[in-house]
Design a protein around this nucleic acid. Structure first.
Length: 494
RNA sequence: GCGUCCGUAGCUCAGCUGGUAGAGCACUCGGCUUUUAACCGAUUGGUCGUGCGUUCGAGUCGCACCGGACGCACCA
């Protein structure tokens, strides 16, 4: 096991110092501190101050001590805007107070007052005349020489990760910017942000295994939602023409660098539009988000340049298959034809395929998906794997669905929503039959959803975007855990 | 669930075909210093992931287990 950051020797030492601070009648955990400037503000205000120059300007700064040199003569103080150096010298501070600095440790919070100067070395500093401790640390921070690199420890103690690794804080700021951009984009287009139930009697709207929980007084099992789709569409039925939810989704599946059991999805439903208009809208939103987060529509992800430049390529699934395998799907009339062709290609896992459409999708996933590096809308899916999607207006057996891929990964899924209640009932009954036959990922029959649709639903376009995966791409994060502040971890068994 | 790799001091790691458990950093003490110290000196710190086995002798070899990383599978 890795360190729990509780080495008793180092902690005891800090407890000893804490005791000494208290014996001096100093509160090591005071109530407030009035600051005049953040570090960044000082750097901006005094950017033209020459080296080895003093000012008379008195400032008050506060933050966390992360480094100290020359026996506390130079202290690196960090706030959430950056670093400012403190210069602590007996010339300016009473000697006994100067000595008390040694009761501090790296990691402690400190407030200081003094004048602004730039040192001979060119480092902007606060020449400290008085200081106060604002929070004593008991746990030692990781070695700043080696950094905090243990992958497991970083995720388990994310707060330490954030203290030690500025890029981690930066990633979460960017995540916030991404979500805010999307909100503003949608709000400015008349979309209404709504909230729908997390706890559901049946978990529908996607193919995934749900988490199960229990309500005590009702004495019933409930599922955590695997999608927000079915409730958002009820809102469309209810008369809201543009609704969206940025919500946590829970799926009881494997954990990997691209999957966290809980993740954040944007789902948007917009009446009177179809999947063609939706692709235009999605492009615009994603490009705007990329520019706000990464500064440009072009980003580098894991060494590969990804250009979110409009328009994104639009590629029919059957054409993607043809491009990479040479296979003409129109010659595959039946499930058996498709299976035979897939076996002939080799390397296609058909374990969960029970229809022609699923086989085509498997061929795509195994042969073509990883080659979709630049943003590409894969369009026109087989009807069998899309029970909530409107049939294609011209191509039999297909539906008006797209998925957006970038770096070979799925980012979004959208379609012209199925609005025919009779067709919907039939498709969900087929799903329910599969579920009854043991397919854990098939959708349950949500009769109330069908009932809602029987009350009438306008033509609607709808999309789901994996926010975590989008943020991964825009922040060059290799793992979904890098963009989730507190990723799911196996508990430590003692 | 399967495969590959990994587990030695608080951290980063060394430790050869089996033979006295090490280094740097951190911590503590001391020194030096009115502009950079990631300095100098000394001390402290270990059930070598756990268990069993082979052996005169195991950090090292074997087996099992625990934990982790990555990949695959599952999953958009």
């Amino acid at each position: 096991m890795t360190s729990e950051q509780d080495d008793s020797r180092l902690r005891q030492e800090r407890l000893r110092k804490l005791e000494m601070i208290r014996e001096l009648n100093i509160n090591p955990y005071p109530y407030s501190f009035t600051r005049s400037h953040k570090a960044q503000e000082l750097h901006e205000k005094y950017k033209d101050l020459p080296a080895d120059t003093e000012t008379e300007d008195v400032v008050r700064v506060c933050g966390r001590v992360l480094n100290e040199r020359n026996t506390w003569m130079f202290v690196d103080l960090y706030d959430d805007s950056g670093k400012i150096q403190l210069f602590c010298h007996k010339q300016n501070i009473p000697e006994e107070e100067l000595k008390r600095l040694r009761l501090l440790d790296k990691g402690d919070f400190l407030g200081a007052e003094g004048t602004v100067r730039r040192t001979k070395q060119g480092e902007l500093s606060v020449k400290v005349t008085s200081y106060e401790i604002l929070g004593k640390t008991l746990q030692p921070l990781p070695d700043s020489w080696d950094g905090f690199t243990d992958v497991e420890a970083r995720y388990r103690h994310r707060y330490v990760d954030m203290i030690m690794n500025p890029n981690v804080r930066d990633t979460f700021r960017k995540r916030s910017i991404a979500i805010r951009t999307i909100r503003e984009f949608l709000d400015s287009r008349g979309c209404l942000e709504v909230e729908t139930p997390v706890l559901q009697v049946e978990a529908g709207g996607a193919d995934a295994r749900p988490f199960i929980t229990h309500h005590n007084t009702l004495d019933i099992d409930l599922y955590l939602r695997i999608a927000t789709e079915l409730h958002l569409k009820r809102l469309i039925v209810g008369g809201f023409e543009r609704v969206y939810e940025i919500g946590r989704i829970f799926r009881n599946e494997g954990i990997s660098t691209r999957h966290n059991p809980e993740f954040t999805m944007l789902e948007l439903y917009w009446a009177y539009g179809d999947y063609n208009q939706l692709m235009d809208l999605a492009e615009e939103m994603i490009v705007e988000t990329a520019i706000k987060v990464a500064g440009a529509s072009k980003v580098t992800y894991q060494g590969v340049e990804i250009d979110f430049k409009r328009p994104f390529r639009r590629l029919r699934m059957v054409d993607a298959i043809k491009e990479t395998t040479g296979l003409d799907c129109s010659t595959l009339k039946t499930f058996e034809d498709a299976k035979t062709a897939a076996v002939k290609l080799g390397g296609v896992d058909l374990t969960h395929c029970d229809t022609r459409g699923h086989v085509l999708n498997a061929i795509f996933e195994h042969k073509a998906e990883s080659s979709l590096i630049q943003p590409t809308f894969l369009i026109d899916y087989p009807v069998e794997m899309s029970p909530l999607t409107k049939p294609h207006r011209t191509n039999p057996g297909e539906v008006e669905r797209f998925e957006l891929f970038a770096y070979g990964r799925e980012l979004a899924n959208g379609y012209s929503e199925l609005t025919d209640p009779l067709d919907q009932r039939q498709r969900l009954e087929e799903q329910a039959a599969k579920k009854a036959a043991g397919n854990e990922e098939a959708m349950p029959l949500d009769l109330d959803f069908i009932n809602a649709m029987e009350y009438g639903m306008p033509p609607t376009m709808g999309i789901g975007i994996g926010i975590d995966r989008l943020v991964m791409l825009l922040t060059d994060s290799a793992s979904i855990r890098d963009v989730v502040a507190f990723p799911t971890m196996k508990p430590i068994v003692k």
